[in-house]
Design a protein around this nucleic acid. Structure first.
Lengths: 358, 358
DNA sequence: CGACAGGATGATATCGATAACAATTTCAGG
DNA sequence: CCTGAAATTGTTATCGATATCATCCTGTCG
């Protein structure tokens, strides 16, 4: 549009206008547009010789395929939509990378959005995404607004929920039980002799994975007869390191004899450890601290942090793979649940004097 | 498509098939499709009453606008493409967030891709993006393949390069001089009395920002008459914390009397500090260490890390804003350079005994 | 009271590719 | 040399919305 109003001195040759279309490439080569279209896909039957000539012309003219036109007539957008709570959290960006990698060479492109841990924002994004007619959609977690669920149902595309095991799955699930993972960590530490457990996590239910970890903690501590856990909450997600530092201070003020503190994430665990160090306390000598998520930092910092390793990348990769399965099967796959692995990683931050971790 | 082959027991009422189109909404309301189309945009002239009826119908039927059809006829895709080296690096994810935020309520959607610090991958991605006919494109850095430049030129859309000041800008630029920022850090530390400077950075030229920081370091150390800097290189990007730990070990083996080490990023600085701590060295007493990027970790860890604060979020936000300007101006804007701010943040990791930082 | 500005709505062509089917060519085997 | 199946290419209609221009309606002002 621009260069029709005012023919500027762009360094483009006359014929170079960007309105280049498949038909023009076809005319240039002396074939029909349909043949050019076929040449762009490997499966279509076009003679090698013709394809070569077409591709040369494409190169010479600088033609770029227009997928928006293509997807209209083929009724395939080539998009997979994915919504994550935050892209700044390396756990989720690992998941996003897993999805991107799994879609490599499938002709599908990832359309990524951030919900900021908000179901309302998620609803908006789902609508925005559906307007692009994605062929499948990947969500984080299982809590969605009613309208979001309605839109997804109507869209008639495969849905994969990740990072949790929703009670009422929409379709497919790729994730693990956050509460059981946290329970495992509690039991592991209890078996090492810890008795007085503290917990640091977010306040709201917005971070559903956080809430699940919290309840897994609480339930297990009680089951083990260790009394009610000592819980400190900080603000809303996203979780920051700083909040961990503030929280450990309140926790120790209130319950100075706490032996071990579990944190909703490694980031808050790290903040807590650094704050302790700053105040002259030694971790784990004076207090043991563990995290969740096995972020890079936890294996590097001093002391190294005990945590739950989650297969973030695998979650993304498998979610995309399940979606691809569903697409190939023409949507006739059952609504399966794919469990992803997690494991306790014991490190320095919870080592007991005389009780080696290895 | 699925439910035409096999009418399954989906809990959808008969009329609920997903092939709902604007024309059907129109028929339902008793208006023309054109009026429905107008109702979806705020500026169009549709009577309030009609719009209300249409929106009710949209709600009742569960219609979702189809942008792929819309963008074909309006010749506006509603996409802005953005390429970043890595999404797992919080500096870049902050930039991505800045872009997303700036596009809020503009009707434009971000199409994000990762180049993995590779110009070849960038070229592929640029082509993939251009097939979606984005209205503008944001790139990281200024080094692109010749074909990438050609494609961008032909596309005739505004381009913004970020995070650097390319020598030969394509169009607009939003960034800062990495070498000058590093030079500033060197001078600041030199003015505090440091004389024996070491540097830790990546090996390859793939991370162009890293190379620029390195050359800024080297040049400034020499200018100050402090001899050639002591440089240690580790592997290819992305930068990991672990590499920082390994690098500081080699550096101190080779030049044990080094007083201060500058790192290409806070992540490697953190790794280096933790490794020192682990080996019984105290930072900054035994050696001072500084980073680059002011990641969250640097203000939390112990000791807190001296670094260069970069306006990552602002880079994204402004890049998107410049693109919007260009789109509103119909592409007639000059090719400006927008400088973003950076500043030295002095913290514990470079404090000299008796020389307070504040 | 008539005419006309301007708001609201409709009809039609079109965006650029691809699906579906038709036509043509090629070539093996009888 | 002929026949028919397979390979290759072409023709036409279409995907679902929007640009554009035409039409209709309302109300106001001279």
């Amino acid at each position: 549009m621009k260069n029709e109003d005012e023919p500027k001195d762009k360094r483009l040759k006359p014929g170079d206008a960007q309105k280049l279309t498949m038909a023009e490439v076809a005319k240039y080569v002396g074939v029909s547009a349909m043949t050019v279209s076929r040449a762009f896909r490997q499966d279509a039957s076009v003679s090698e010789e013709t394809r070569k000539r077409i591709m040369e012309a494409v190169d010479a003219l600088g033609y770029v395929l227009d997928l928006s036109a293509g997807s209209l007539s083929s009724r395939r957008s080539g998009f997979i939509a994915a919504l994550v709570p935050s892209i700044n959290n390396s756990n989720f960006s690992d998941t996003a990378r897993g999805m991107t990698d799994a879609l490599q060479n499938t002709g599908l492109q990832l359309l990524l959005g951030y919900t900021d841990y908000s179901a309302e924002k998620e609803e908006e994004l789902i609508e925005a995404m559906l307007r692009r007619r994605p062929e499948g959609i990947i969500l984080t977690g299982g809590s969605h607004t009613a309208r979001a669920r309605r839109m997804l149902a109507k869209a008639g595309i495969p849905v994969v929920e990740t990072w949790e095991l929703p009670e009422d799955p929409i379709n497919q699930v790729v994730g693990f039980s956050n509460s059981e993972a946290m329970a495992l960590l509690v039991r592991t530490l209890a078996s090492q002799g810890y008795r007085k457990f503290g917990y640091i996590g977010g306040t709201t239910a917005r971070d559903t994975r956080g809430s699940q970890r919290r309840s897994g903690f609480q339930k297990t501590v009680e089951e083990l007869g260790l009394g009610p856990g000592r819980m400190i909450s900080f603000g809303v997600p996203p979780i920051t390191m700083e909040q961990g530092g503030q929280a450990i201070v309140s926790l120790l003020e209130r319950w100075p004899d706490t032996e071990v503190v579990l944190c909703v994430s490694d980031l808050s665990a790290f903040g807590a450890i650094m704050e302790c160090t700053r105040r002259g306390m030694k971790v784990p000598r004076d207090i043991a601290i563990a995290g969740f998520g096995d972020y890079e930092i936890s294996s590097i910092c001093h002391p190294r942090i005990t945590t739950i390793n989650v297969d973030c990348y695998g979650i993304g990769r498998q979610a995309a793979a399940r979606l691809l399965d569903a697409l190939h099967a023409g949507g006739s796959t059952g609504d399966e649940i794919t469990l992803t692995s997690y494991k306790v990683v014991l490190r320095e931050s919870t080592e007991r004097a005389g009780v080696p971790t290895a």
